[in-house]
């Protein structure tokens, strides 16, 4: 079989994989069929996928480079890569699976990407966050200062702030209208977290707070009145459905599930004890349809939530609750956030 993927260590990226597939006549024709199989809406899709033609195409594609391909976070053509990924993986799982495999490359547990490596020296942390005598300690304010003094961070923070807090022309806005352009706000937030180095953006979001004023600042980092809240609170399953119909959101959600999934096998309850992986995939959700945020301004008792609930979901309630609990009652995520804010030795919940 001439279309076997080369056995490289690095998984092939899906843009490259689809190019390779298109160079092979058999692969490219099945790939074209597969794209048609997935082109319809949810209901048509499952009927289509069950057909002999689609099943045959899928079988061939499972031996192609597309099967094992992955995408890099923030790569050029990221969206195209993700679309290529789902064009075969959506057929394999058919959207029914609770947790899906992340299309992103695994986040390696390497020293240089561990926030712990720079903040584990707690004396250094205290120096930087609460050094000025007489002033109350407010790490979130220090994070804002660090961002304001950096050109890129300041520019992109001001950009999303201006967009997210700008009302649609006041004379035109009706009382029950959204206070801003949610889509534009979410896009600006995604750009902020994609382009600003995490050393500057994460402290704004995961700073540790001694009091409520600080926690309120932390909660408002993503300007939740625009990016998070809505007049209508949908069911969490509805929200997941909306997310899954979008390649980017679906990928980020799968990545979150993969990296923040509670596991009984590690001390931190995070997969591979990799806090940074969990925080990174959490941040990846900000600006998507499943944007998470702090649910209140409690300084120490952190609760993360989506803007949804499970009331009236009937027989689907257990599934709905399970989905939302991965945000609201996620020990791995909580530990990761606490550990970022307080330095490596602080705050591990068991």
């Amino acid at each position: 079989n001439e279309i076997i993927a080369p056995s490289w260590r690095e998984p092939l990226d899906c843009v490259r994989a689809s190019e390779m597939c298109n160079q092979n006549s058999q692969c490219s024709s099945r790939y074209r069929i597969m794209r048609q199989c997935l082109s319809g809406g949810d209901k048509e899709r499952s009927t289509m996928l069950a057909s002999k033609e689609c099943q045959g195409a899928l079988e061939v594609l499972q031996d192609s480079p597309l099967y094992d391909c992955r995408c890099k976070r923030g790569m050029k053509k990221e969206l195209q890569c993700l679309q290529n990924y789902w064009s075969i993986h959506m057929g394999l799982t058919e959207g029914e699976e609770f947790y899906e495999t992340s299309p992103y490359e695994p986040i390696h547990f390497s020293e240089e990407h561990q926030p712990a490596s720079i903040i584990s020296d707690s004396s250094l942390l205290k120096m930087s966050s609460c050094s000025e005598a007489g002033k109350p300690c407010n790490p979130c304010l220090d994070a804002a200062k660090a961002c304001n003094l950096n050109e890129t961070c300041k520019r992109l923070k001001s950009a999303y702030t201006a967009i997210c807090s700008k009302a649609t022309p006041p004379q035109l806005s009706l009382p029950n209208q959204e206070p801003c352009s949610k889509k534009r706000c979410q896009k600006a937030l995604r750009q902020f977290f994609e382009r600003v180095p995490w050393e500057l953006s994460y402290p704004l979001l995961f700073c540790s707070c001694p009091d409520q004023a600080c926690a309120e600042r932390r909660r408002r980092t993503i300007i939740p009145s625009c990016s998070y809240q809505e007049r209508h609170k949908p069911s969490c399953l509805e929200l997941r459905q909306i997310c899954r119909s979008d390649a980017l959101c679906r990928s980020r959600l799968a990545d979150f599930h993969m990296n923040c999934q509670m596991t009984p096998h590690t001390v931190t309850s995070c997969p591979h004890d990799n806090y940074h992986g969990c925080l990174m995939s959490y941040v990846g959700l900000i600006g998507s349809d499943v944007t998470p945020n702090y649910s209140d301004s409690s300084p120490s008792n952190i609760t993360i939530s989506l803007w949804c609930n499970c009331r009236g979901t009937g027989t689907h309630e257990p599934e709905c609750e399970a989905f939302h609990r991965d945000f609201t009652h996620n020990t791995c995520l909580k530990n990761a956030i606490l550990s970022f804010g307080y330095g490596a030795e602080g705050g591990t919940l068991f």
Partner: peptide, 8 residues
């Protein structure tokens, strides 16, 4: 360019 901040 514009500068944004959160007040007290």
């Amino acid at each position: 360019k514009n500068f944004s901040f959160l007040d007290n």
